[in-house]
Amino acid sequence: MAGDIRRFETREEATSVAAEVVLAGLKTALEEKGRASFCVSGGSTPGPLFDLLAATEFGWERVTVGLVDERWVSPEDTSSNERLVRSRLLTKHAGAAGFIPMRTLHELPEEAVAERNAAYAPHCAPLDVILLGMGNDGHTASWFPGAGGLANALNPVGIETVAAIDARGCPVAGINTQRMTLTGPAVASAQVALMLLFGNDKLDVYEQAKSADPMDMPVRYAIDKLGPRLTVIWAP
């Protein structure tokens, strides 16, 4: 049933199954189209999954990796999702994959929306596999409750694939309030979606989000739009 959670006793087991879900989705895309797109989230949760994928022999040279969202910081900054992906996923076997950055040299993310939309749109029509996370405020991607640009990110007018977010006043966003994110339609296009959650707090938030208003807990948008294409994996 859509929205149900696959629960595992250990994070290692959950990560192993998550890798199987990702690789199966990419394999289907390669068989059908000869190419595959894979957009990933940052944070502390996916690191071990990235390590496992990187060490797996696969047709990575035919996979294009992108980001679900990005903080508007240098790629060398410790909070950069690009830095995480380059150091943990795009290594070993998976080093053969292509990569599309979100961060540009523009001062603000809104100045780069048109350029990054042009880069991302061909890979999100549809997106083959997406890895999502979720914060304790019910956000996914950079869809923070109360953020500037949230309504447009979920239901964009004009540019469809990426949007700028101003997360000033959103506690979970921390000091990096200028963001770029995939839009609601881009996330919802994914043929295979995986959400990896660790800890009892995340379990409680997810259950609340399933009946929340998407503007209050935006992960609800992804849950509803992805439906049975979303696999949620959880471990304590």
Rank of each mutant, 00 (worst) to 15 (best):
M1G: 12
M1F: 11
R7V: 14
R7I: 13
R7Y: 12
T10E: 10
E12M: 05
A18E: 07
V21W: 13
V21D: 11
V22P: 07
G25W: 07
T28C: 12
T28F: 07
A29I: 03
E32G: 07
R35F: 14
S37C: 09
F38K: 02
V40G: 01
S41A: 11
G43Q: 01
S44A: 14
S44I: 04
T45L: 08
T45Y: 01
G47E: 13
G47I: 15
L49T: 09
D51N: 15
T56A: 07
G59N: 13
R62I: 00
L67W: 01
D69E: 08
E70V: 08
S74M: 07
S74G: 09
P75M: 03
T78V: 15
R88D: 02
R88A: 11
L90M: 07
G95H: 00
G98H: 10
G98M: 10
L105V: 11
E107D: 13
P109K: 02
E110K: 12
E111T: 03
V113L: 06
V113E: 01
R116N: 06
Y120K: 06
P122N: 05
H123P: 07
C124L: 13
L127Y: 09
D128W: 09
D128H: 12
L132H: 02
M134G: 03
N136R: 15
N136M: 13
D137L: 06
S142M: 03
P145R: 00
G146H: 07
G146F: 06
A153D: 03
A153N: 01
G158W: 12
G158H: 12
I159C: 06
T161D: 08
T161F: 10
R168L: 14
A173F: 08
N176T: 11
T177C: 11
Q178P: 01
T181C: 02
T183G: 08
A186I: 09
V187P: 05
A190L: 09
Q191M: 11
V192M: 10
A193T: 00
A193C: 05
L194R: 01
L197F: 06
K202Q: 11
D204A: 15
D204Y: 06
V205E: 04
V205Q: 05
Y206T: 04
Q208M: 14
A209M: 05
S211A: 14
A212L: 04
A212C: 10
M217F: 10
V219R: 11
A222F: 13
D224N: 13
V232Y: 01
